[in-house]
């Protein structure tokens, strides 16, 4: 609704950077949503990265799906690439697994520590900048969680009303990468 399109890019930048007073944030939450938030959001992020590829979708503060000449890949803000966005990006990350008493004690102390016989705390780091991209708390043996596989073509075509130049099949390609590893 047009009456809620009241925030400019600078307002959203302040929101992104946590600079808005809580009362203002509350008012933003109570208002109807601004229709062009996504475009302002991507504009802010695009200005902050040093690389040129177009951001198609922000995934986390550090990771984005970007348009390469012939493919869409997950890319860190530092420039490190994680390959086809349809493959769980965690397979291209560095991982540190905390599954011993000693390793878990570096995060959780004494009685607040989970059970290392059952659980793994997996920290995924960017090989390029060392950012901690994700932390998984899962039972031992659980495959890495593929949190987000967005349907980009549907999103741009149906929801934003501007189709991406070339469509690409919406499918989970993680097991294909595993197949390559297994060989």
């Amino acid at each position: 609704m047009a009456e809620y399109d009241i925030y400019d890019v600078e307002d959203i930048r302040k929101l992104v950077d946590g600079e808005l007073p809580w009362r203002t944030v509350q008012q933003m939450m109570k208002n109807g949503k601004d229709r062009d938030r996504f475009d302002k959001w991507v504009t802010i992020l695009q200005e902050r990265v040093s690389w040129k590829e177009k951001i198609l979708l922000p995934l986390t503060p550090a990771l984005f799906i970007v348009q390469k000449p012939r493919e869409r890949v997950v890319k860190c803000r530092c420039g490190q690439e994680f390959g086809d966005y349809r493959v769980n990006w965690k397979l291209s990350a560095l991982i540190h697994v905390r599954d011993t008493d000693e390793k878990l004690s570096q995060v959780y102390r004494g009685y607040e520590k989970p059970d290392p016989a059952w659980m793994q705390l997996r920290e995924y780091y960017c090989p390029g900048c060392g950012s901690q991209l994700e932390v998984e708390a899962v039972p031992r043996g659980c495959p890495p969680d593929f949190e987000f596989l967005p349907d980009l073509d549907t999103f741009y075509r149906e929801w934003l009303g501007r189709p991406l130049p070339e469509s690409c099949e919406f499918a989970d390609r993680t097991l294909q990468r595993i197949g390559e590893w297994a060989e």
Binding site: T60, P61, A62, K113, P114, Q132, E134, V135, A137
Partner: peptide, 21 residues
């Protein structure tokens, strides 16, 4: 209890285990 819920987002950690004494 012994397995923390998977609630950390984008590099944040889940809080620790229930401490009951």
């Amino acid at each position: 209890y012994g397995i923390l819920p998977n609630l950390g987002l984008s590099g944040g950690y889940p809080g620790g285990k229930l401490i009951r004494a």
